[in-house]
């Protein structure tokens, strides 16, 4: 790969409600991307701790130095939309420290259905919801569900236990998204993660 094709590093946002599986998805994406030789770094956002960063560092999946933490101190959306300076600085610092980095994943703190990423911060962002949150979530038309570049519906394994009609949930999600993609995952098993990697390879890594 020539330098020109990897610069600037793609910045990919991962947002979504509390507990939908954002960190679990990061933990699945790291090995899947590394297997394909993608030079990677991660930024996590938490309220007043570095909890998710510590979890990813301890995971053994990635050099802990490649995991940076941003503490929002306030509502998580403030640092990914209103003033993303802290995250932009964290990404720039990772790029300086690891000049070959091709992709930086930025996990937002768990927020609500209205949270969105500023384009100043990310080239592409996904919104992670989960079936246990209820199959009416897409119908509620939150900006995250509608405007994200990719909607991920996680925890598909739980659908039978929480009485969720998954095909209907997906149809309604597609209906409100005007043709933009919707993918499903089970981050407990890794099912569906490859399709997300392919999406990233096409849309921002330009590998296919």
């Amino acid at each position: 790969m020539s330098a020109v094709s990897t610069r600037p590093a793609a910045r990919v946002g991962i947002g979504g409600p509390v507990g939908s599986g954002k960190t679990a998805l990061v933990e699945r994406l790291i090995p899947a991307l590394m297997r394909r030789g993608v030079d990677l770094a991660v930024i996590t956002n938490d309220l007043v701790t570095a909890e998710d960063a510590e979890r990813v560092r301890r995971s053994g999946l990635i050099d802990p130095a490649r995991v940076a933490a941003v503490e929002a101190g306030a509502c998580p959306h403030t640092v990914i939309r209103e003033d993303p300076t802290l995250n932009i600085e964290a990404a720039a610092a990772l790029e300086r420290q690891f000049p070959g980095v091709e992709l930086i994943l930025l996990e937002s703190g768990g927020d609500n259905l209205a949270s969105t990423f500023s384009r100043d911060l990310t080239d592409f962002w996904m919104f992670v919801i989960d079936v246990a949150g209820g199959d009416d979530i897409p119908r509620k038309r939150g900006p995250g569900v509608i405007r994200s570049d990719l909607l991920v519906v996680n925890k598909v394994d739980l659908a039978p236990y929480v009485g969720v009609d998954l095909p209907r949930m997906l149809a309604e999600a597609r209906a409100v998204r005007g043709g933009r993609p919707v993918l499903t995952t089970n981050c407990r098993t890794g099912e569906g993660v490859d399709a997300i990697v392919q999406q990233l390879e096409r849309e921002v890594l330009f590998r296919q």
Binding site: P8, S118, T122, D123, E203, V204
Partner: peptide, 8 residues
Amino acid sequence: DLGRRRIR
């Protein structure tokens, strides 16, 4: 999409 630095 204004603001993106990578796009297909």
